[in-house]
Amino acid sequence: MSKGRRRFRRAAGQAVSVAVTLLGLLMLTFFIGRMMPADPVRAIVGEDATPETYDMVYSQLGLDRPLWAQFLRYMGDVLTGNFGQSIRTGQPVIQDILHVMPATIELATFAIVIGAGLGVPLGVLAAVNKDRWIDHAVRVFSLFGHSMPIFWTGMIALLIFYAGLGWVGGSGRMDYFYIGMVPSRTGFLLIDSLLAGEWRVFFSAINHLILPATLLGYSASAYITRMTRSFMLDQLNQEYMTTARVKGLSRGQTIWRHAFSNIRVQLVTIVALSYGALLEGAVLIETVFAWPGFGQYLTNNLVIGDMNAVMTCVLIVGVIFIALNLLSDILYRLFDPRTK
């Protein structure tokens, strides 16, 4: 009874805090939008419009109303899913973004698989061999991934593995002559090509995906490695590691059954948070690899100053971040017996 109530109160508290953060997010994007030195009215009506036209558009945009009224209107628009039109494509911004999102999700998902596949084993290895050469080697390797300017590494990797060695596909999601060959049903090229039974397109897509995903994954693995190592060290210093050894388990069994299995939940939360951070790398790597995803959409609109599109992108990234944070929190509560 009281347990259920406590859980309800905690959930309610969390809901309120998420709502407040979302409101803050809206305020932030609203004010950044207003900070802009460029004149949004002038952008619409053009340089040689009459003052009457100018004033009409000015009040149409609601710019003559007080700031709080403008904010309320912006909030209402966002809540009803109206993010405005993109100047470049003339389409509703949200539709554009939904169109480009699958490409980014495909890239980021591959990258996180690589990042976790690299980071978790390396972190365990480093913790088990703390202060030995393996530990130092892992540390330098992962800091290296964390230190590289990913847009530059992307260019160098293209130069070596595509232009030089020809091992992987170049820019874009697939080779040119495959473009338009498979109908877009889900937007995820790997799935679409499989649905259409086009194996050549599928392999071309993998070929193009592997390099940017590896680079993104490598840069994300630094954080995963570091956290895995420190979680593992926490475990290895615990008294129950000794208990397990006294029972007759080998060191390897102890590490696997008692240390690693204890940190699985924490690792899932870390990987979820890293997934959000990947979006940041995606903005740069998509520019380098001409990847038609979210990041490229954002940078293209930045260059032409389409603030509607830019602010919507920023807002969406913020929402994804909050959602991932919430998700990792919930996972933790669900799977750690101590929080029940």
Partner: peptide
Amino acid sequence: AFPSLILSLAFVAAL
């Protein structure tokens, strides 16, 4: 709640 690069992008775009 934002990755730092994305938020910086937004600020620079505005400024």
